[in-house]
């Protein structure tokens, strides 16, 4: 198993931490992982992205040309990464920030209304966990149980009270992600 994923959105949407939680979950399953952020001026406003690779074998390059899955959470991210999804790969987007349609027809396109859902849950901070849930639904690369273990290990104890809310967000994401276009 080798999954090359890019997660991209506005700084502050939790893109980097979502990638970190995913990578941590991989470690919990004794997989090889790499997490490489665009650490430039992006994190000071604008578009942030991170490449996460999860593999059963050792990972050659942390930098890749094409992705199995691109998660795009704003319009510039869609424009930047649509072309970089492997044919037959998946693109996940949140309808909230994206107004232009995906043009390619050789990739699977999934829509997840995570921002709307997080507002319904009265907690926009779990937005990224809803997206993570959606990702794990379409590509169960790690167990939700291990995601929770990873979260527990990476969060300081004073934040452990937030764990059930995060788990609920992941499960909600799994429910609401929808296949919008099947690759032809």
């Amino acid at each position: 198993m080798l999954q090359e994923i890019v997660i991209s959105g506005f700084g502050g949407q939790g893109v980097l931490s979502m990638g970190k939680i995913l990578a941590y979950s991989g470690i919990m399953e004794d997989k090889e992982v790499s997490w490489f952020p665009a650490y430039g001026p992006e994190q000071r406003g604008g578009t942030a992205n991170v490449t996460v690779i999860i593999s059963d074998e050792s990972i050659s390059s942390p930098v890749v040309n094409k992705y199995d899955i691109a998660i795009v959470l704003n319009q510039p991210s869609l424009e930047k990464f649509e072309d970089k999804v492997k044919p037959g790969g998946a693109l996940i987007y949140d309808g909230y920030g994206i107004h232009k349609k995906v043009e390619r027809d050789d990739i699977n396109v999934f829509r997840i209304n995570a921002m709307d859902e997080s507002m319904k849950m009265n907690n926009t901070k779990v937005f990224n966990m809803i997206v993570l849930g959606g990702l794990l639904k379409i590509s169960p690369m790690v167990d939700v149980e291990n995601v929770m273990k990873g979260l527990k290990k990476s969060l300081p104890e004073r934040h452990h009270k937030l764990l059930p809310m995060n788990e609920e967000a992941i499960l909600r994401g799994m429910e609401i992600i929808q296949l919008e276009q099947k690759a032809v």
């Binding site: 970190k20 990578a23 090889e32 992982v33 790499s34 997490w35 490489f36 650490y39 942390p62």
Partner: peptide
């Protein structure tokens, strides 16, 4: 360099 310094691995 910045790649190895900034990336996370096990």
């Amino acid at each position: 360099d910045g790649v190895i310094g900034q990336m996370m691995e096990r």
